[in-house]
Computed example of a mutant assay.
Amino acid sequence: MDEQVDILDKNGEPTGESCLKSEAHRKGLLHPTVHIWFYTPEGRVLIQQRGKNKATHPLLWDVSVAGHVAAGEKIVTAASREVEEEIGLTISEIDLESLGTFKAVHKISEDFIDAELHHIYLCQLSVPLNQLTIQESEVEDLALVPLFKFAEETWGLASMGKYVPHGPTYYKTIIKAIKSRT
């Protein structure tokens, strides 16, 4: 879906301008997104396999839930909305624990530069995996993996072709934050 997104300056501050997401990607304009990482008290991480028709990284494993923040939308509202859309789970904004932001710029092609400021949240998964409902246009599959296996595959970058390449610093931040809560 090609929604309006707010444009941010190089410091992540709103410029007061917005445009279609496709234009932001075409021009490499920085815009806000949300990443929500679900984990269990037993130390498992919910990962999502991206849909086969996604423009970037189809069928790779990624963050539990992710999406763009619509123009004028509050960040936590976008996070709650994306969780409900992608995995069918209703959560409250107070369920989200902010880990801060992470700026990522990836040149996908000459006319597609993904420049995003990820607002990262943790959320404890309070329902069994089989109670989640995937949004088939966005998500191919969901899996719960032990944190140690996830760390081995992302932190050490042992499975580079399996996961979206967010980079070791990003993954280390997520792994350490989940580990300290389980």
Rank of each mutant, 00 (worst) to 15 (best):
Y39A: 06
Y121Q: 04
L132W: 02
T77K: 09
A71P: 07
Q49E: 11
G12E: 08
I36S: 04
I75Y: 09
W61M: 07
I134K: 12
Y170T: 05
A78H: 06
L89N: 04
A79R: 03
A104L: 14
H25R: 15
K172H: 14
H31D: 01
H166Y: 15
L60M: 12
I134Y: 01
Y170Q: 07
P32K: 06
A71C: 13
V34T: 11
H31T: 11
L60T: 09
K179N: 07
Y39Q: 05
H118K: 15
E3V: 13
E85T: 14
S137H: 09
H119F: 10
Y170E: 07
L29H: 06
V69W: 00
L20V: 00
F102I: 00
I178M: 03
K179M: 10
Q135R: 12
S137K: 13
A158S: 13
H25P: 02
M1K: 12
T101C: 11
I7V: 15
K107A: 13
E23F: 09
P146S: 13
G16H: 11
V65C: 07
E138W: 11
A115T: 04
T133C: 04
K103A: 11
A55Y: 09
I178L: 04
P128D: 13
E152R: 14
L96C: 10
E13G: 03
S22P: 10
K103C: 10
Q49P: 05
T40I: 08
K162S: 09
